[in-house]
Amino acid sequence: MGTRIRIKTKPKRTFQMRIAGLGFRNGHVLVHRATHESFWTFPGGGAEIGETSEETLKREMVEELGVEVQVERLLWMVENFFRYEGRDWHELGLYYLMQIPVSFPFASDTIIHRVQDGDNDLEFKWVEATTAALNALDIPPYFIAGEIEALPPALRHLVWDDRDLDAKPPR
């Protein structure tokens, strides 16, 4: 295991680089969460020093899904600010379009895969790739729900800050 790109400072601030993938099938997108969390995320994980973002996504998907994905184009580069576990986070997030092999199971709106990832028990499910379905799910960063039905045709860079969003539950 390499050295993860994560810096913790005082008072209670953390920077990390996270790479995630959006994989689609039958009008659904794959999401996952740690079973102790209320919110969902798109599968991925922390980048490691000396590893390209595509290598990170491929490694994470082998570790979490047990399959090799095809990494396609970069959809979003997000300077993401949020609160989590009593800390203020500054995350550089890269979100790719990816192809998941057909050998990976599909069933709509039910847990289709579980895996132990460090201290976390992860569960995966396919959800409808619609704004309404993602808004109902609580899946940060929240801007993706509004763009899921029409992915950006070219790389989109944005700064996203959900530290003060009253409409969403605290994380």
Results as ranks from 00 to 15, higher is better:
49 I>L: 14
152 P>H: 13
63 E>M: 11
1 M>K: 13
40 W>S: 01
120 N>L: 13
169 P>L: 11
12 K>I: 00
82 F>C: 05
24 F>V: 03
4 R>W: 10
121 D>Q: 13
137 L>E: 10
136 A>H: 10
85 E>S: 07
108 S>R: 10
91 E>S: 10
86 G>T: 04
20 A>K: 08
94 L>V: 09
31 V>G: 04
66 G>S: 07
143 F>M: 10
163 R>C: 09
9 T>C: 09
53 S>V: 10
30 L>P: 02
4 R>Y: 12
68 E>R: 11
27 G>C: 02
27 G>S: 03
56 T>G: 07
71 V>M: 07
157 H>D: 08
117 D>E: 11
17 M>K: 13
103 S>A: 14
3 T>N: 13
72 E>L: 14
113 H>N: 07
56 T>L: 08
84 Y>V: 01
166 D>P: 08
12 K>A: 12
77 M>R: 15
38 S>Y: 10
164 D>W: 06
154 A>H: 14
26 N>S: 10
84 Y>W: 12
120 N>V: 01
156 R>N: 12
123 E>K: 08
63 E>P: 02
116 Q>W: 03
148 I>F: 00
156 R>S: 14
22 L>S: 01
75 L>N: 08
91 E>W: 06
90 H>F: 14
119 D>S: 11
117 D>L: 06
144 I>N: 06
165 L>F: 10
44 G>Q: 09
144 I>G: 06
148 I>K: 01
24 F>I: 02
166 D>A: 15
79 E>Y: 09
69 V>P: 04
75 L>F: 04
26 N>L: 06
102 V>I: 02
76 W>D: 06
149 E>I: 02
41 T>E: 15
33 R>P: 03
154 A>G: 03
82 F>W: 12
170 P>Y: 04
159 V>M: 12
136 A>C: 07
153 P>W: 04
133 A>T: 00
81 F>E: 12
139 I>T: 11
63 E>A: 11
